[in-house]
């Protein structure tokens, strides 16, 4: 299974994801340059965290116009696995690959902290090593992670089980106090209807080694590899 990590100008978690996929999981992985226009030969694309184009205008708003994005969109629409983390999630929203939008955190400050997440749906390529309802611990680091979708979109996300992670208390209860940014329904990550594009604000690459205080993030990447190695495929 071959991973591609897209490097936008201002991406700054690209090396972190690359490290986890390559050095920790032992998977083949390449950087893909924003100025290129081809993603052929890759099985999963990761849009990493960071401040693409300085987050100027609005997080992800400029990156969606990067030369590589048409190829990413084609890849995603034809069922390719795409994972957007933090700024990558914001880019997926701006590119219309996932529904909804990001607002500034309700506290109006950047937040870097560990968060607990409840796994709402484990029947995806990204979460199959978790149990449904499992509480996992993954850090966040963002200033614009306040996810918003209108009521109709939310209802659809619920109905299709597209909400994958919600911020929760350590015991799994989804409470306002456990919500670090004001996101609607405590949403931390969503998937597209077809189930091949995941966007999440927390950073799984930051907790893939016990030295860094947790390994729940490793399970997310390992889920992708397991899913692929079982020969499961989506889309065309």
């Amino acid at each position: 299974m071959k991973f591609g990590v897209i490097v936008f100008p201002g991406s700054n978690c690209d090396q972190d994801v690359y490290h986890v996929l390559g050095a920790v999981l032992g998977q083949p992985v390449d950087y893909l340059w924003h100025g290129d226009t081809d993603v052929a030969g890759y099985d999963c694309l990761v849009l990493p965290g960071g401040f693409s184009y300085g987050d100027y205008l609005r997080a992800g708003a400029i990156a969606r116009f990067a030369p590589i994005m048409p190829a990413v969109i084609d890849f995603a629409r034809s069922g390719g696995l795409v994972l957007g983390i933090c700024n990558g999630f914001q880019i997926l929203l701006e590119a219309g690959l996932l529904p909804g939008a990001m607002r500034r955190n309700d506290c109006l400050q950047f937040r870097c902290q560990w968060t607990y997440l409840r796994v709402e749906n484990n029947a995806t390529p990204f979460t199959n090593r978790f149990r449904e309802g499992q509480v996992i611990r993954i850090p966040i680091a963002h200033g614009e992670g306040n996810y918003y979708a209108d009521a109709a979109t939310l209802a659809e996300l619920e109905a299709n089980r597209q909400i994958i992670f919600r911020y929760c208390a350590p015991d799994g209860e989804v409470t306002p106090a456990a919500n670090p940014n004001g996101s609607v329904g405590n949403i931390a990550g969503i998937i597209n209807r077809e189930g091949n594009i995941l966007g999440m604000m927390p950073h799984p690459e930051r907790c893939a080694e016990s030295l860094l205080g947790g390994t729940d993030g490793r399970e997310l990447f390992a889920s992708i590899v397991d899913w692929w190695q079982r020969g499961e495929r989506l889309g065309a």
């Binding site: 978690c13 986890v20 870097c112 893939a208 860094l212």
Partner: peptide
């Protein structure tokens, strides 16, 4: 308010 984890 500081990202103290980036670079892993």
């Amino acid at each position: 308010q500081y990202d103290y984890m980036v670079r892993t």
